[in-house]
């Protein structure tokens, strides 16, 4: 219940924030979000800044440059854009820290199973990919050339695709053998 409520409040908040254009309000809400996150603020802020840095710096710098050349003001836009994007990203990362995604979607048993299985499968695939990368590195003397790296990337993606087909069949058989589909019928 708590997780579903949290998810709903966050959804309303992120949509609402996109209707706010006053930097003072956005700044105030950001400070409120920092207070809400408490001790987690520095870590979440760092992650949020890393996530938005590339796009925000490019957009802000481009706008400052073009507005300066045209002799137009740019300060308000840059402050507003950066505060809004930072606030939205910070709130999302804070939610991800607070939220148990599986509990949040338990209103739908099918969705819950998809989320549980997906998160588990991601770990399996990440392990496979990491094994491939380490094996590739251990077999390479120096930095491999472009052709070799391209071939390796292709093999990695191919291995993932094959593993996915096998896993889908295996999980399906596992669920059937445990009566999952009978319970739902």
């Amino acid at each position: 219940m708590k997780d579903r409520l949290l998810l709903s409040v966050w959804l309303v908040a992120v949509v609402g924030i996109t209707f706010i254009h006053d930097p003072v309000w956005l700044g105030g809400l950001l400070l409120l979000a920092f207070a809400l996150a408490g001790k987690a603020t520095p870590g979440l802020l760092k992650r949020a800044l890393v996530a938005i840095a590339l796009v925000n710096i490019a957009v802000s710098a481009g706008f400052v440059l073009s507005a300066s050349i045209a002799g137009e003001p740019w300060g308000l836009f840059v402050i507003r854009l950066n505060l809004r994007v930072l606030l939205l990203t910070f709130l999302t990362l804070w939610l991800a820290r607070q939220l148990d995604l599986v509990r949040a979607v338990d209103f739908s048993p099918s969705l819950k199973f998809v989320v549980v299985l997906t998160l588990g499968q991601i770990k399996t695939f990440q392990r496979l990919l990491s094994d491939y990368r380490m094996a590739f590195r251990s077999r390479s003397l120096g930095r491999p050339d472009l052709k070799t790296r391209t071939r390796s990337a292709g093999r990695q993606a191919g291995a993932l695709l094959e593993k996915a087909e096998l896993q889908a069949t295996e999980v399906n058989l596992g669920m059937r053998s445990r009566g999952f589909f009978d319970d739902r019928a």
């Binding site: 099918s110 199973f113 399996t124 993932l160 896993q167």
Partner: peptide, 16 residues
Amino acid sequence: ESLIPRLAVLTALAFV
């Protein structure tokens, strides 16, 4: 009936 496992595996695959 293979929707759930297939969709989950596909999602994980796309993510990775």
